[in-house]
Simulated scan of single mutants.
Amino acid sequence: MVSGEWSLIIFSILTQCAVGIWVVAIGLRTFTKGTEPNIAAELTWRPLLVVGPLMCIALVISIFHLGSPIQAYASVANLLTSWLSREIVFSGLFLFFWVISILVYRRGTSSVILGWVTSFLGLIAVFSMASIYYTTPIPAWASPNTYISFFATMIILGSLASTMFMETSKDFTAHQGARTTLWKLSLFTMGVLLIQGAFFIVNSEVHSFLPVLYCILLFLGGINFLVYSFQRYNKSGNGLRPVFYLSLVLLFSAQVLGRYLFYSSAVPIMG
């Protein structure tokens, strides 16, 4: 694994995490707004704020892979034909609309449409990122598993990071609606996690240490997140907060390891 691939690992995971946080937070604002309009906005404010800094870090790291800012500028010239150009453009548009959205939300204005437009730009950025690899002559990458893996990472890390920042709010456990939403979010995340793990097992040779370790980290992290969320749902989870942080470490480590295995599988078709 060369250093350039590590920059790709960090860039892709941070980008997907940032988009995931935004999508999850906007989803929570949209679907819990009917019963607790102010609580949903207050709980998701901190997760929304962290998206921009994460994207800025990811974009700076991406320059190290491209080699120089001049190459980064030149890479957007082929927007109509290059998935790399689309990835860069839509990542930049996502960051730009994040700034607009935050300024609007800071004024106390709630714009569901603006939030979902920003989400759409982020989703297109992740789709473009996956398409870069899907369109290569590398069998392990030219598979639907590439899209599943990238979007699953987005949802899993987005859910965990959103929960982590919502934890800092004093209203997080004070309202039944918020606790119910967390429980539903953890169930959804576990479902996505199972799909990611199943496709990894089907599309990989799970016989060596690292793939087995990846599966263990993934499933243990998901179980820990479910246990924590269930305890929160029953309003008895304060003592189990370390369980959540353990799930955060396990699942983040799993995603990094999974992405490492993804890049390590780059064996092109021999002509």
Rank of each mutant, 00 (worst) to 15 (best):
F151I: 10
A178N: 07
G27I: 02
N38T: 10
V2W: 14
F219R: 07
T109V: 14
F262E: 08
V24I: 15
L93T: 00
A74N: 12
L49F: 12
I155G: 01
S7Y: 10
M190S: 13
G222W: 02
A161G: 07
H175P: 01
F225Y: 15
F150Y: 08
S111K: 02
I63V: 15
H175T: 12
V76F: 11
Q71E: 13
R241Q: 12
F200K: 00
I13E: 01
V117N: 05
A174K: 15
V104P: 03
A58D: 06
F64K: 05
V202T: 09
T163G: 08
M55Y: 03
A40L: 03
A266R: 09
F151H: 05
L210C: 06
T168K: 11
M1S: 14
S131R: 11
E5D: 13
A198D: 06
I57P: 00
V192E: 02
V227Q: 04
S91P: 01
W22T: 07
N238C: 08
F252M: 11
L220P: 04
F94W: 07
Y260L: 11
L157G: 03
V117D: 06
I148C: 04
A40H: 08
Y245L: 05
T146R: 03
H175C: 08
P47Q: 02
Q196C: 03
Q231T: 13
R29P: 04
S143N: 13
H65T: 01
P53Y: 07
P47L: 11
Y133D: 08
S7N: 10
L48I: 14
P268E: 01
G115C: 10
A72C: 01
S111Q: 01
L49M: 13
G67W: 00
I156H: 05
C215K: 00
